[in-house]
Nucleic acid binder design. Structure first.
Lengths: 336, 336
DNA sequence: CTGTTAGCGCTTTCAC
DNA sequence: GTGAAAGCGCTAACAG
């Protein structure tokens, strides 16, 4: 058994209340007794029982982070951002993921329940009706990352996929002079990929470019699907001049496909990605992509959540969009 | 306020004790009352207060994971492994890192204290005297990842750096026929890098190779230091035939340096790494490296820790080494 | 300034 | 089978 304030109280010949006060820096404790108590506590290697404290204060100092998976850079960065802010405010972060196995995040949502954490940040690509229901019932503050604003009653934080995608497409057209621009989409049901797709088509239309159907291929955000999609594009009678992949992982697949066709980036075909993952800079040639400040998403989410936890449900729900920016490297080049 | 067993008890016209029993599957509750209670609980969306339960059962179902940093693949994988095992046993994992800022992991160690978590897994590259002291005093089970067995009284899990490094060096010599083999070391005080270095030198000696001093350069496990070290090696009058970098990140730096010298891998110079990070396969040419089953380290650590938590401090401390394996790709080639 | 006391929500004897 | 009651370690009035 760990040591408790009761034992300290005995050793110090005071009541447990005084010990509690001294430990909590309450001003009205004679400094001599305070010092005595603190000394004993240190000596005994005392650590307060967080659970007991939480029980009475109804304040656990823990927030939950729900992730669909624990793999890849995206997750790490989100977590890092969340934890950094949470930690600096004295909160701990518990992560729960579906681990691929088990019933999905829904179980976890329920599991983390209303009693363990003081708030939750939820990152789920697709929000089912069941999850919506759980969210609606929640009695603790919630933040949703990256979802389309399907649920207007909770705060959300997301990246401005549309803007990033529009920007990139515009850059390919206006600055580099590309005309034949293909797009490899992400999963059809995924919000990110939908918005990125729309940014692409809108920019194409606005600049009077032809949005050929066979230049739009579906992928699933992983390397393999990017490779496949790229093969398809390279096999067309009329090849595009540049491929804009909806994320960097698929762009990596394109490097492989292009190589296997004996072609060169960017001379034979240009390539652009989206996400600016760590690896992007080490590909050869380096990948032109859209920078997504992932850890900022985590930081912002945590910030909004903690504010809610502190100030209650007073204000209206906020929907924050985080801007992206272009990262210009050598995988695309000016058309002459 | 969330709903409590008291309210359920009222609605069901029983005592809170009965509710508690019903909720905990205690056999001696009439099945009709049990059913009634369970129904009400479900209806009210009841979630037990984990803290109250923990307080009385002295059993928090939380383990702590202490990491020096939250960046990079290594961390993610460790966490993934730990959480997977922990979760499957009904435990939650709380991660704490030093966030670069603040006083180091020591603060965290102390902070997580003895009351919040039932056990801790600690990953720290260098173990200071102060940390050793804290570890010695700990009243909860601890697992140390990757440390030299400086502290024999606690369980440890680590990868067999020496074996992996020896294997790679042997492969370069015996299978590929390299004779002039350079090594870029990791940080001098880091246990991993020390063992990798020893694996290299031992293999070199055993095969009668010359361990030239100017072919051994210090790095610090990041891309930049690898690039620098590689430049140094390439500038030597007598260039090595192959560079064995103590980790993949430094190997990535080598790609850049080699390129800037107008040389080609593996024709002009061979390259080998250590870690087998995700990126390794997407470099061009693909990197020959040593595979480290990172998430296995996490899984094993969690397994050993949970066993300790369940069975107490009965058995002697265990020191588990996880083997590595070669990943043969195209960045090294047979000498003719 | 300090002690007494009443819980926080839950589990667990000990009675009935 | 079920209820009453004690208590896990701590905080927060309420008195002195």
């Amino acid at each position: 058994m760990a040591i408790t304030i009761k034992e300290i109280a005995e050793k110090a010949n005071v009541s447990i209340a005084t010990v509690s006060r001294a430990l909590n820096d309450n001003k009205k404790v004679k400094s001599s007794t305070r010092k005595a108590i603190l000394d004993i506590a240190k000596n005994l290697n005392y650590v307060p029982n967080a659970f007991a404290r939480s029980l009475v204060k109804n304040d656990t100092k823990i927030i939950g982070l729900i992730l669909p998976d624990l793999e890849g850079e995206f997750f790490t960065e989100i977590f890092r951002g969340v934890d950094e802010v949470a930690y600096s405010e004295g909160f701990h972060t518990i992560v729960a993921s579906s681990h691929g196995q088990r019933s999905i995040a829904e179980a976890i949502l329920n599991f983390m329940g209303e009693s363990f954490v003081q708030g939750m940040i939820i990152l789920i690509p697709v929000i089912s009706e069941q999850i919506k229901e759980i969210i609606r019932r929640s009695s603790i503050p919630l933040i949703i990352i990256n979802a389309r604003n399907e649920i207007n009653t909770v705060d959300s934080v997301g990246i401005d996929n549309y803007q990033g995608s529009y920007l990139m497409t515009e850059y390919l057209i206006k600055t580099l002079g590309y005309k034949k621009i293909a797009h490899i989409r992400g999963p059809l049901h995924n919000n990110d990929s939908l918005q990125r797709f729309k940014g692409y088509t809108d920019a194409m239309k606005n600049y009077g470019m032809e949005c050929r159907e066979d230049w739009i291929v579906n992928g699933s955000f992983n390397v393999f699907s990017g490779e496949q999609a790229c093969r398809r594009l390279l096999s067309l009678k009329e090849r595009p001049e540049v491929i804009f992949a909806a994320n960097d992982m698929m762009a990596i697949g394109c490097y492989r496909a292009v190589k296997s066709f004996g072609l060169t980036i960017p001379d034979d075909i240009g390539l652009a990605g989206f996400d600016d993952i760590f690896i992007a800079e080490f590909l050869s040639p380096r990948l032109t992509t859209v920078h997504v400040p992932i850890s900022d998403i985590g930081k912002t989410s945590a910030g909004v959540l903690l504010e809610r936890i502190k100030n209650g449900n007073g204000r209206d729900s906020r929907h924050i969009k985080i801007s992206t920016g272009l990262v210009i490297k050598e995988s695309c080049r000016k058309r002459v």
